[in-house]
Design a binder for these strands. Structure first.
Lengths: 144, 144
DNA sequence: TTGCAAGTTCAAGTCGACTTGAGGTCAAGA
DNA sequence: TCTTGACCTCAAGTCGACTTGAACTTGCAA
């Protein structure tokens, strides 16, 4: 199959051209050459981009992902790293679940003011002592 | 009980003085006066800070939290808003759970390269098509 | 051949929640 | 009274992942 134009990669991957340039600059992907001044990409870049998306979704930073794509063709994905991430996710999930339950309760609680609800106050204490854990940064959906 | 010095609030709440000043500037908390140039806080500020921590943990932004503390003493916490957040959390949890399971599988998968594992490839496709959902920003633990 | 949409580079901007630094003030203990 | 360390203000910096803008070049359809 033919090499792809940046717009085509963008279209097929759902990733903006500006992002693709950015990723190339970061060394996450690479173009196989140029037609004039314009980048050409091997179709394989699509798989690589999927891999990057996966990594991001799993909570890896671009830098961490770059490390996995270290020198040498195929991605070197460390199984330990994966387990570690899985466990990290697990902890996050637990925190969020507790939070969700708290919120649900607070939403349904009959007390006139949340401050009068024992459950709410309990959650409050937990949050205050940091047990619930601080800012899980808000999911920021990309504009694509 | 006596009014508190900013250092004391910091110490009791586990929130840095710089953050307290920042919160005051944002209108999230307020000091009751000054001793010389130094802020004095009512002990109630601690409950307010707990509330802020809770809101943050639930995924509200500081601006959203500020809205809840609208004019008029007690926090006006909208039950609808809480349910909405709870549902949002629920969706996030689902995404993360899928991700975690995928990671676990990938970590345990016997295939020599992840690329040869059908499950991995399936997850990959999901990520590529955005089904898994993009960057849940990484939890960034405060330095405190 | 020409027009122009789409590509290119490079620097700077954005968002949220803070932190840091410089330079100044002052309450309180010795 | 003097010292000093904690506090103050205000501006700027940080982090991550991109986006945006300005200024420029060019492949390709008409």
């Amino acid at each position: 199959m033919k090499d792809l134009d940046i717009a085509e990669v963008a279209q097929r991957s759902g990733i903006r051209a500006s992002t693709l340039r950015f990723y190339e600059e970061k060394g996450l992907i690479s173009s196989v050459g140029r037609r004039g001044m314009r980048r050409l990409f091997d179709p394989d870049v699509l798989e690589r981009l999927a891999l990057i998306a996966l990594g991001r979704a799993a909570g890896f930073s671009l830098d961490e992902i770059a490390l996995m794509f270290a020198p040498g063709g195929r991605p070197r994905i460390d199984r330990e790293m994966l387990s570690a991430k899985a466990e990290e996710l697990d902890r996050t999930i637990r925190r969020l679940s507790a939070m969700r339950d708290g919120l649900k309760h607070a939403a349904d609680c009959p007390e006139p003011s949340h401050m009068d609800c024992p459950t709410f106050r309990r959650i409050l204490r937990a949050a205050a002592t940091g047990m619930i854990g601080a800012p899980t940064k808000r999911p920021r959906r990309p504009l694509n």
